[in-house]
Design a protein around this nucleic acid. Structure first.
Lengths: 168, 168
DNA sequence: CCATTCCGGTTCAGTCATTGAACTGTCGAT
DNA sequence: ATCGACAGTTCAATGACTGAACCGGAATGG
């Protein structure tokens, strides 16, 4: 994205954040990482992203400390810095649900411990607490469209209730 | 950004949201709109974006109903749909502040009515309420870097405490 | 053992988007 | 009429993205 570093943007943390996660595909890669995707090939087939672009993006995310690459297994995992992106992703998902999914949310977020729905500020409707990412369960919601073929094991795993960050 | 519409992304509201606001410059344009920028030339000089790109982006944002263009004054303003993007922008700003601004937030958000700081979930520390965008005051924070020339009236206006959405 | 498959990642040419600078056209004020 | 201010366009050059083929090492299996 090329640091703009104009005087105007030097004082904007949004511009800084978008330097890292504002390029095409990047946030979708991070989203998949939350869903438990860890392997190069799984990112590629899941997102339909060209492998060259994926390699570039993953390298950049590792360099910035959003993902960590396990040298022995070649798996990519979110770091704490990456996990800290969750509120931003949730906010964008909520906006997309609100304005582009007439039948309701496409994915529902629940507190895995008590099943309470998580609101758009990250709070559980049951216990009222702020729910950490590892305790969030994601499941198809009313706006979910189940038609069409989805044979490969990775995408079927992603369309079934599961906890965030749990490996596919 | 070109609808991917793969089976994988059809059920992801994040992908849908990024179709609209995921292209380069788009979120920065929306941010400036929150800061009160309304005119073509002000967006251009403020962001340092090529005028051709700006025209394309503004057209797209108007088409999607994020901005509305006043036919008589040629001013662009956020619609309710655009204003609904605020939580996402705030979340990304907070992430940028946390990881790229060692001295603290670059811009502090306060509840204009009682001066209470607004946390990263949109709540006022004083009254505890969820603060609507029109009651948010933005002001330089401890991480703000005031050095360097910033003579033009628009950017000086943006670097002084002011309410969101108030015209420059 | 050797062959095969799987998998992470690279290479490369074609295409598409972005950029910056110059330009057009419209409006209101002088 | 003329000028300046402003919204938006045009266009060549550059750079990013794409898709398909390819490379090489590590597991798999006969």
């Amino acid at each position: 994205m090329s640091l703009p570093s104009t005087y105007a943007d030097r004082n904007c943390s949004l511009a800084r954040a978008l330097e890292i996660v504002g390029e095409r595909w990047t946030l979708l890669i991070v989203r998949d990482a939350f869903y438990g995707v860890r392997r190069f090939g799984d990112f590629a087939t899941q997102l339909g992203i060209p492998r060259a672009s994926l390699a570039t993006r993953l390298k950049a995310l590792v360099e910035e400390g959003v993902l960590a690459r396990d040298e022995s297994t070649a798996e990519y995992r979110l770091t704490d810095k990456g996990i800290a992106l969750w509120p931003a992703i949730r906010a964008l998902m909520a906006w997309g649900d609100e304005f582009y999914s007439a039948k309701g949310v496409k994915r529902a977020l629940r507190h895995a411990e008590d099943g309470g729905l998580i609101d758009d500020r990250g709070r559980c409707a049951e216990c009222g607490l702020l729910i950490p990412v590892t305790e969030i369960q994601i499941a198809p919601g009313p706006g979910f469209d189940a038609t069409g073929p989805a044979k490969d094991p990775v995408s079927t795993a992603m369309n079934v209730p599961r906890r965030l960050l749990e490996p596919i």
